[in-house]
Design a protein around this nucleic acid. Structure first.
Length: 304
DNA sequence: CGGGACTCCTGCCAGC
DNA sequence: TGCTGGCAGGAGTCCC
């Protein structure tokens, strides 16, 4: 899926189409994605103005004018495509070659175009997700209702998330505290969204390479000040570089304008099994191993 | 409780 | 050419 840099790129692509705009109409073409969509999904969105588009970890948060928040997670293959209001269609790379048939129109929609937002200004935003690992939720405003888990902070998807890696709350001491005493591998610990949020398989591999840390180390063995400092810097750097490149495009991910991200060309270990290590003077080769059923790429020569 | 295995779904690609 | 198995950027659940 889209990891943090891809979700951030999607957010930036959606801002001009959605922020400050009113939703005229919503087309819901199936009952659910990974989970059932929330009750009265279409009704609760129709007529609402989107005041702000935020990102938390890998979640997109659309703040509505009535205080509700539409939360969207792209899973592995979720994708937003923006069609400009002018009627000048900028086709996605893989589909939507035809102009849409006006508000509410279903013409030109693909099999996996699950949710369509028609905006008051004539723009259209399509959410497609062929694997349906993505999901959406509608969160009532803080203070509304008294069920536990209501409100944004208490939302079950957001409550346990670790610090935002590019935010001020992420630092070597914070990471250290979250790694200390954990017997699992540093690879698994970084994939765990409670440790630090927003990383996925690619950026964990790349960050560990940049930090010169073996993915096989236990989390607790990385908790000292020197390694956590290096790791925090590596995580911040790799995410920042990837955002600047518009994210990474491998299979499913594309930006909202159908353009591709370019960071995949800067991968140093991910998907590079058998290739020479890119660290000057290392001379090692990238290997692929499996950790908790997922591929890990690293250089045994310089990641210790 | 922490940690690992398994699961959901579809598409693609390598290999036979 | 056509089928099959493996693999894919995530994360919730279950079980030890």
């Amino acid at each position: 899926m889209p990891e943090l840099p891809e979700v951030e790129t999607v957010r930036r692509g959606l801002v001009p189409a959605l922020e400050g705009k009113r939703i005229a109409r919503v087309l819901q073409r199936r009952a659910g994605l990974r989970y059932l969509l929330p009750e009265r999904f279409v009704e609760r969105l129709t007529g609402r103005r989107i005041e702000r588009l935020d990102r938390r970890a890998k979640y997109l948060l659309l703040h509505l004018d009535n205080g509700e928040v539409l939360l969207s997670h792209l899973g592995m293959s979720g994708r937003f495509t923006v069609m400009a209001p002018s009627g000048v269609v900028r086709p996605g790379r893989f589909h939507h070659p035809m102009p849409h048939g006006g508000p509410g129109g279903e013409e030109g929609l693909g099999l996996h175009d699950h949710i369509v937002f028609d905006m008051e200004d004539g723009g259209r935003v399509i959410y497609a997700d062929h694997r349906r690992f993505g999901f959406m939720d509608l969160i009532a405003p803080d203070g509304a209702g008294d069920e536990p888990g209501s409100g944004l902070r208490a939302n079950r998807h957001l409550a346990a998330l670790g610090p935002e890696p590019l935010g001020n709350d992420f630092s070597a001491p914070v990471l250290s505290a979250r790694l200390k005493g954990r017997a699992t591998s540093i690879k698994a610990a970084l994939l765990d969204q409670r440790t630090v949020s927003g990383l996925g398989n690619i950026y964990v591999c790349e960050a560990l390479f940049r930090a010169g840390i073996s993915p096989l180390r236990t989390a607790s063995s990385v908790a000292g000040p020197v390694r956590t400092e290096r790791l925090v810097r590596a995580i911040r750097d790799v995410l920042t570089d990837a955002i600047m490149a518009g994210g990474s495009t491998l299979r499913d991910y594309a930006r909202t304008d159908g353009e591709l991200g370019y960071f995949q060309h800067q991968f140093q270990v991910y998907g590079r099994e058998g290739e020479a290590c890119s660290r000057p003077g290392c001379g090692g080769r990238v290997v692929r191993i499996v950790q908790s059923n997922r591929s890990t790429f690293y250089c045994p020569g310089c990641q210790r």
